[in-house]
């Protein structure tokens, strides 16, 4: 059964007691919580996620709970626990959802070393993946949000997961946190998009979460081949410009930006070499999203003409 089809009352009971398990990309999460607004938002933003058996191996056992202290009487907080341990400072209770998403990202980045983890957004079309590495000021989340409303399938907004030895991208479709001005830009660009409430004044300013499209969740077992690495750079008033860059440069920029390239050592090197070899690499400056998506869409048609 998918979140959207479940009786909310029943789901709440489950979440409170034994916890609920669901898959997000290759990972299985077991979540226990009594914070009902959190659960509500989770089911609203992930309606297509499937509830799975609790009695299987889960990758992450998460509990979102209110710390037991006097503070909760006047300023209630939510805290993220993994395996019963809390590594982060608590957040205000009404920011439980962004706290959980962020905590989960942290857990993935520090644990899932069975993958080479690029810090990138990844989208795909016709079984080919486009990798958009996160660089400061790249506007990667906004661009990714735009692309998935112009024909691309969302793999992930944050993690390019590559299994060593297999030159494929593993999807991890989760919500896309849009920040500050991007929230309204995407609302206008894709009025059909599902956005959660705006959380004011988080560490990264105002944040609203864009739900992953249903097809992204339904196809999270389809692993496309890498085809393009595009380093985006948001440049005010610039027209969309896609410039090929040497593979060597792309390699170094991608490696430096990965979560665990150094940790994986030789494995990481080999993984990225075969990835870069199979990709065309570009730097991309843009400002207008409509024109940006058109330029990137043209990559696909070019490839089709070539083959």
């Amino acid at each position: 059964m998918r979140f959207g089809e479940l009786d909310p009352q029943w789901l709440r009971q489950q979440a409170k007691n034994g916890g609920i398990s669901f898959n997000t990309g290759p990972f299985r999460i077991q979540l226990q919580t009594q914070i009902m607004p959190l659960l509500e938002l989770l089911t609203q933003l992930y309606p297509a996620s499937e509830l799975v058996n609790n009695r299987e191996v889960a990758d992450f056992h998460i509990r979102m709970a209110q710390p037991r202290n006097y503070r909760r009487l006047w300023r209630p907080q939510a805290r993220f626990y993994i395996d019963g341990r809390s590594h982060f400072e608590p957040y205000p209770l009404d920011h439980a959802f962004p706290h959980m998403e962020w905590g989960l990202n942290y857990c993935i980045a520090t644990r899932a070393h069975q993958y080479c983890m690029l810090h990138s957004a990844v989208v795909a079309r016709n079984g080919r993946a486009l990798i958009l590495p996160a660089m400061p000021g790249s506007g990667k989340s906004t661009l990714c949000a735009a692309l998935i409303h112009r024909g691309w399938r969302l793999l992930s907004d944050e993690f390019g997961l590559v299994q060593p030895g297999k030159n494929r991208l593993t999807p991890l479709p989760r919500v896309i946190p849009l920040k500050n001005r991007s929230i309204d830009i995407i609302r206008e660009f894709a009025p059909e998009a599902t956005l959660g409430p705006t959380f004011p004044k988080t560490r990264k300013g105002d944040v609203a979460h864009l739900a992953p499209p249903v097809d992204a969740i339904l196809n999270q077992d389809q692993h496309p081949e890498p085809a393009w690495v595009v380093f985006p750079k948001y440049t005010p008033n610039a027209s969309s410009q896609l410039e090929p860059i040497p593979k060597g440069i792309a390699f170094i920029r991608l490696a430096n930006n990965a979560f665990n390239y150094r940790l994986l050592g030789e494995t990481g090197y080999k993984t990225l070499v075969s990835l870069i070899k199979s990709c065309k690499c570009y730097s991309f400056s843009y400002s207008d999203l409509e024109s940006a998506t058109q330029t990137l869409n043209a990559l696909v048609s070019k490839q089709e003409v070539a083959s």
Binding site: V57, H113, Q114, Y115, N260, R262, L263, G265, T267
Partner: peptide, 21 residues
């Protein structure tokens, strides 16, 4: 072993390999 168990052991191995290096 279940697939997930292997995944997790693999992740842990990458981590311990790094520390040993």
């Amino acid at each position: 072993c279940p697939r997930k168990a292997l995944d997790n052991m693999q992740g842990a191995k990458a981590y311990s390999d790094f520390y040993q290096t």
